[in-house]
Write a protein that binds this DNA or RNA. Sequence first.
DNA 1: TATTGTTATACTCTATAACTATA
DNA 2: TATAGTTATAGAGTATAACAATA
Lengths: 148, 148
Amino acid sequence: MSETTAPCASDLLEVIPLIFRTIRAEMRQRRGADLSIPQFRSLIFLSRQPRASLNELAGYLGLTAPTTCKLVDDLVARQLVTRAPSTLDRRKIELEITPRGVDLLAAARQGTLEQLSSLLEPLSAEEKTHISRSLALLRQIFAHESQK
Amino acid sequence: MSETTAPCASDLLEVIPLIFRTIRAEMRQRRGADLSIPQFRSLIFLSRQPRASLNELAGYLGLTAPTTCKLVDDLVARQLVTRAPSTLDRRKIELEITPRGVDLLAAARQGTLEQLSSLLEPLSAEEKTHISRSLALLRQIFAHESQK
DNA sequence: TATTGTTATACTCTATAACTATA
DNA sequence: TATAGTTATAGAGTATAACAATA
């Protein structure tokens, strides 16, 4: 193994959770007080995965089908998601995020981006492009991995 | 604002959660089936913060004192943590991770490091030092931020 | 007969309120 | 009188089991 690998892995394990805590705190703060974290994560998933089924959503959330079913009940009641029987297999449902759900997500994302930007601002342009290039490398590696 | 800031923030918001999901999945898998996430996080906190009080731990976990108290009951019963009244202020308690708790944490951390290393291995030495340097910059920025 | 989603019920986790001991 | 921690009670969130509808 290359002698640069272990230190790099150690850096990742130390720094990534640090940054993630800030991002999560910021997102949660802006998600709207009356939406639970799994509900918020559902919107994120459905914004990337149109017409997902209940079981697909449950799999992403790491929750059981009954729990997810009730969670979706609430999202539908709030008009953040629509639920319709699939035309191909009428046992299945098709979940879809509504424009209102998209707006909610966009607002949270925008607020978080502004917070991150203010933190990055003090860095030089070189340092920021350096970081972006590193993140591009890491994205390639972890894009497939996190599907598992 | 520098024109490199917004793209860099956007990269962070996309890539950090991606990496974090892999790290968390790996840590959880290795934490031992019968230990809850807050309990596991307690061990992490106490490994860095010897003789912490109940309220300090509760603050870190984002839980209330009663909830944390019961959680600690269980950690003590499993002999992963000790709880003793403080000698300076006998209202307070001093929490301490046991050698057994340290071992559990070390094993989880080691397994995760190996997993991360295997993912990073394909990168060149230059790319890995590049990433480490970027992470050092980010660590400075987010070290203080995540205390809040 | 198997699969998708839902409903019924029970349990775990967490919080608020009340209490004890120490400062 | 205020503070640190604990105990008692109640509420949210989640799971397992049983069920209905479709394949």
